[in-house]
Design a protein around this nucleic acid. Sequence first.
DNA 1: GAAAAGATTACCT
DNA 2: GGTAATCTTTTCC
Length: 190
Amino acid sequence: MIPRRPRLGRRFFDRPTVTVARELLGAHLGVGPAGRRRWVEIVECEAYVADDPANHAYRGMTRRNRSMFGRPGTLYIYRIHRVVCANAVTRPGEAVLLRAARPLGPMADSTRGPGRLARALGFRLADDGTDMVDSPTIVWYGRREIPPIVAGPRVGIRRAADAPLRWAIRGSPWVSLPRPPGVSPRPTGA
DNA sequence: GAAAAGATTACCT
DNA sequence: GGTAATCTTTTCC
C-alpha cells in the first residue's frame, strides 16, 4: 500500500536547514492556480546556513534578503544576472536553494538549473516573500519514499566553496551541471 | 553617487 | 574549455 503524500506545513520547514534540504529531494512542488498548476519533483538543492559566507544573509538583513527572515516556508526569490532563483526559507536567515527538478505532467520548459527551474515554474521577483505554507498558488507535498542521495560542494560560489551542502537524487538525469559524483547520466553502478 | 559583484545561462572556439 | 549578457543589490567612497 502506497502511503499518501503529506502536505508540507510550517513544522516541516521549521527544522535545521540541512534536514529540510535533504528531505525536499523527492518532494512535489505545484505552482500556479488550481487547474493550471505546474508540478515538479525536486531532485537537487543546496543549503545556505548560519555563519555561512556564501549565504545572502551572512551580513544580516538587507533589502534583498529580507524574506529570508520571514516565517519558515517563505519563498525567497532573488535575481542573478538575468534570471531569478527560488529558495524555501527554513529558519531566520537560512534557506534551501531549489536547483533542479523532474517535470511532472505537461511541462515543456527545462527544469535543470536554478534559473531555468524558477522560470519553468513561473516564479517572478514579485513572488518573493510569499508564504508557501498558506498559499492558494504554491503547494508542497512530501516524498513517499526516501530516495538515494549524493552530496557535493555547492555550485557557483566563491566563499565556502568546499562545504558539502549540495544534495541530489543519485542517478537522476534531471540534476544540473556540474554533476556531483554518482549522478552521471549513465550511473556506473548500484 | 559611482562602482563592483554576483547562489546563472547561452553561446563561442 | 572560455566569456559575454544584463540588471539589481550591495558596498565603497
